[in-house]
Design a protein around this nucleic acid. Structure first.
Length: 260
DNA sequence: ATGGTTGCTTAGCAA
């Protein structure tokens, strides 16, 4: 079983690229998408259904938006995080696919440290932790995937000094990431790589990608029972190349069969 | 050097 996550930066602008990638990857079982930037009625669901996916969406006009593609039918779909009835931003999906509880997250960027958006990011992340505590079972297979907009460690940032005051690498956010891990999640990427210079996002500007000035902010975090089955993880830099790419690369993790 | 790029929507915001 493979689980992928990809901030596509508009599903309508990226549709052909995403379809090509899914086919080239031979249709991963579960795919979490972020920043779809489209209302549910305008999501190009047919194209993904045609290649064999169930399509679950939680979108809004212009901003945000998440989607879950799955090779089998999802159940118990939840499309809001809870904890704030006023909050209508489309950033969250929870569902069960086969035996796995999947969470697809688009964590707020936070814009500038100290801003209102930064406070929202902090609150939103604490609501995620509450959702885990109240609605999830750390003893069962669960994968929390998405653009978490946090680089957890210095080795996840091309220039930690330059980024130390940014919302993506701020100590409070790294602490919030640690709080998610403290609930019982493991960063699958770090099961397979210890080195730095491996990133999932590069700014569109200033030739950041060819210079590899990136950050690792897209993650697949799993509970212990899945971590034990995680045989491989990859960030597909190829998908970031060329004209018409998202500013994020997809991350894909592979899991072996359930042990007898 | 305070820039630059992309997408949505149409001049300004968000990332």
């Amino acid at each position: 079983m493979r689980i992928a996550t990809w901030n596509v930066n508009s599903i309508r602008a990226r549709k052909e690229r995403v379809l090509d990638w899914l086919i080239r990857q031979q249709l991963p079982e579960i795919v979490c998408l972020q920043e779809t930037k489209v209302t549910d009625d305008a999501f190009p669901r047919r194209e993904f259904e045609d290649i064999g996916y169930w399509v679950t969406v939680c979108g809004q006009k212009t901003y945000n938006g998440v989607a879950l593609l799955s090779r089998s039918e999802p159940s118990q779909v939840v499309d809001h995080l809870g904890g704030d009835p006023e909050d209508r931003e489309a950033r969250f999906l929870s569902a069960y696919i086969a035996d796995v509880h999947i969470l697809c997250l688009y964590v707020p960027n936070g814009q500038v440290v100290g801003s209102e958006k930064f406070a929202y990011k902090r609150t939103w992340l604490s609501r995620v932790r509450h959702f885990l505590d109240a609605q999830c079972d750390a003893g069962k297979p669960l994968a929390l995937c998405g653009d978490l907009n946090i680089a957890p460690e210095a080795r996840d940032v091309h220039d930690p000094e330059e980024w130390q005051d940014s919302v993506l690498f701020h100590p409070d956010m790294r602490q919030a990431f640690a709080a998610l891990c403290g609930w019982g999640l493991v960063d699958t990427f770090r099961l397979h790589y210890v080195e730095g210079d491996l990133y999932s996002w590069w700014d569109y500007r200033q030739l950041a990608f060819p210079r590899n000035k990136g950050l690792r902010i897209d993650h697949i975090l799993v509970t212990q029972s899945l971590a034990e089955r995680c045989t491989d993880v990859a960030i597909d830099r190829e998908a970031r190349k060329g004209k018409g790419a998202s500013d994020h690369a997809p991350v894909i993790a592979e899991f072996g069969a359930v042990p007898e």
